[in-house]
Design a protein around this nucleic acid. Structure first.
Length: 560
RNA sequence: UGGGGCGUAGCCAAGUGGUAAGGCACCGGUCUUUGGAACCGGCAUUCGUUGGUUCGAAUCCACCCGCCCCAGCCA
């Protein structure tokens, strides 16, 4: 057991519990998603906590699907969730479903009815709401609250048998209609729903509510520490009430703050709207904050886990800046991903004094952060492509890339000097005529001369064409929900969150790059091969490199 | 005077009576065949406010202010 390193209040509680011998030093947690949608980065924080704490203290963590509402749940989501949890790097001990417990829950309901702690109520949904009272006024007791145990037992059994239509009756806990805690004002335990369930089919037509299922499910699994997000603080009294009335294993619930990120939406309802209204291409669109979207974008599980660890666990409603996530992404990618050259916006360069028929293989380092990654060779020839942004006919101050008369280094190749700029009839620069210094092969300068810039390139005759998809934040504003009256978050959608470049040039070593493979395009950023890639190469930009020049240039144009 | 939570730097966050960790961002600098990475340095006399207790308060007490959650037969 480790008690070193950054802690948090839940971890501290666990350490205390182990020390005091509560639960015999055992730690059992669970991650309990409802299979009604895809997992996103917010869930990743919960997963890291649930699985991470169990692992740290030699405990176990179950994956339990909270599938108590058949109207929203599907097997497709169950499978996607399992895939995402494993991709993130975690393996559950037990795999369970709340629906596994339907029979036990039903028997416990009968036990509560028998004890006079639950009753069948014939009030409609509207009536129940009216009887519940308000935040400041107490509720009123249902006229059905004092039915006899026998009648309740009979009615509940008939509810189960399917004798009544949806919505006609509910089973309610008999607690206190005047409680200041709204959840305790005779909460509904069961509702009638004649609907197929993704696992139990038509076996049941009454389904337990979250509050009646969750705590008992934890208890059945002997969960010691049940973590959930802050909005469930209000449910804790009820969670405890059922466990106490039933006299079952005392699981305890602890609430922590939900993850929130700038420029990002993490509400299943809103993400669903983005998908349905085709603002994105699907749940795994690389701009989505879903784990499947992030995976396709090129995120690594390690980066996400490190990020989750960095934001900590507390009870404050904070909004973490996206840059913090991006930092951990770059950090991980930087040390594991091979470098390669890609020219996104090609500008032709002809080396006038380089032999027309010569092709040299230049040796390049695959990953300067990892010497075991070795080297590869890249063909060099007379006609090349360089990045359009790496040349300025009239270079501004502090721009030290290529310009007329200026010398720069071609990465791993030669030093070249720009002699002439060729334009088309419209004045657009179409080609640069340069000369190279044969003594600088590999980019070395035997005379010790310095050049201020090294730029990337690709041999025109050897380059492969590729499509590159550049992604930006899906939302322009930090808070996507910050909109004018009458608008919704879609008003904040970034019109250029996806930009497709169709004729990028990549070095030939990328010919057979398989989908999912990650690279750093030198000086540009991190990219990965999209699943759309085939005979035609398609890359997703995961994240750009930090760009100091862009910052300088922006500062200059903004007029600082 | 409904209940439950939370306020420490631009953001996240340690800290639980002994004189404000760390990370992101930002700003300098070193180094560099990626304007990347790495490295060095800077960045809260003050912890929502106001009082009080104390030799000593972000930590204890009181009041006030602000924000979040709860009135689904959703989870």
């Amino acid at each position: 057991m480790s008690t070193e390193g950054p802690s948090n209040f839940i971890r501290d509680i666990i350490i205390e519990d182990i020390k005091s011998g509560k639960y015999g030093g055992r730690v059992q947690t669970r991650f309990p998603p409802e299979p009604n949608g895809y997992l996103h980065i917010g869930h990743a924080k919960a997963i890291c906590l649930d699985f991470g704490l169990a692992a740290e203290f030699g405990g176990k963590c179950n994956l339990r699907f909270d599938d108590t509402n058949p109207s929203k749940e599907e097997t497709e989501y169950v499978n996607a969730i399992m895939e995402d949890v494993q991709w993130l790097g975690f393996q559950w001990d037990g795999l369970y479903y709340a629906s596994d417990y339907f029979q036990q829950l039903y028997e416990w309901a009968i036990q509560l009815i028998t004890a006079g702690k639950a009753y069948v109520c014939d009030l409609s949904a509207d009536e129940i709401r009216a009887y519940r009272g308000t935040l400041t006024e107490p509720g009123r007791e249902s006229p059905y609250r004092n039915r006899s145990v026998e009648e309740n037992l009979d009615l509940f059994e008939r509810m189960k048998k399917g004798e009544f239509p949806d919505g006609s009756r509910t089973l309610r806990a008999r607690i206190d209609m005047t409680s200041p805690i709204l959840n305790l004002r005779d909460p509904v335990m069961y509702r009638i729903l004649h609907m197929d369930h993704h696992r139990t089919g038509n076996e049941w037509c009454i389904y337990p509510m979250y509050d009646y299922a969750h705590g008992q499910s934890d208890s059945i699994e002997h969960v010691t520490h049940s973590m959930c997000t802050l909005e469930f603080e209000n449910n804790r009294p009820l969670y405890n009430w059922f466990i106490e009335q039933l006299g079952i294993f005392p699981s305890r619930q602890y609430e922590f703050d939900r993850l929130a990120l700038t420029h990002t939406l993490l509400s299943k309802r809103k993400l669903l709207k983005l998908v349905e209204e085709r603002h994105v291409e699907g749940w795994d669109d690389p701009r989505m904050p879903t784990l499947s979207g992030m995976r396709r974008r090129g995120y690594t599980p390690e980066a996400i886990r490190n990020f989750c660890a960095s934001v900590g666990v507390s009870k404050t409603n904070g909004i973490t800046q996206l840059q913090q996530l991006e930092y951990f992404l770059r950090q991980d990618l930087n040390r594991i991903v091979p470098r390669v050259m890609c020219v996104q916006k090609p500008l032709r360069v002809v080396i006038e004094n380089y032999p027309d028929d010569l092709v040299e293989e230049m040796e390049a380092i695959n990953n300067p952060e990892d010497s075991s990654a070795g080297t590869r060779t890249i063909p060099f020839s007379r006609t090349l492509y360089i990045e359009e942004d790496d040349f300025r006919e009239d270079p501004p101050k502090q721009f030290y890339r290529l310009a007329p008369g200026r010398e720069v280094r071609l990465r791993y190749a030669y030093l070249i000097t720009c002699k002439e700029v060729i334009k088309d009839s419209s004045g657009r620069i179409v080609e640069l005529r340069c000369t190279y210094d044969p003594a600088t092969r590999g980019g070395n300068t035997p005379d010790g001369r310095k050049v201020k810039s090294t730029i990337h390139w690709v041999s025109a005759a050897h380059a492969l064409s590729a499509e590159v998809r550049l992604y930006d934040n899906l939302f322009v504003k930090e808070d996507p929900n910050d909109v004018a009256e009458g608008q919704d978050f879609t008003a904040n959608l970034h019109p250029e969150s996806l930009q497709v470049l169709h004729d990028c040039k990549v070095e030939p070593s990328l010919r057979d790059a398989a989908p999912g493979t990650k690279y750093q395009f030198e000086r540009l950023g991190y990219y990965c091969v999209d699943r759309d890639s085939g005979q035609r190469l398609v890359f997703n930009r995961t994240i750009g490199l930090r760009d100091t020049w862009a910052k300088i240039e922006k500062r200059a144009t903004t007029g600082a």
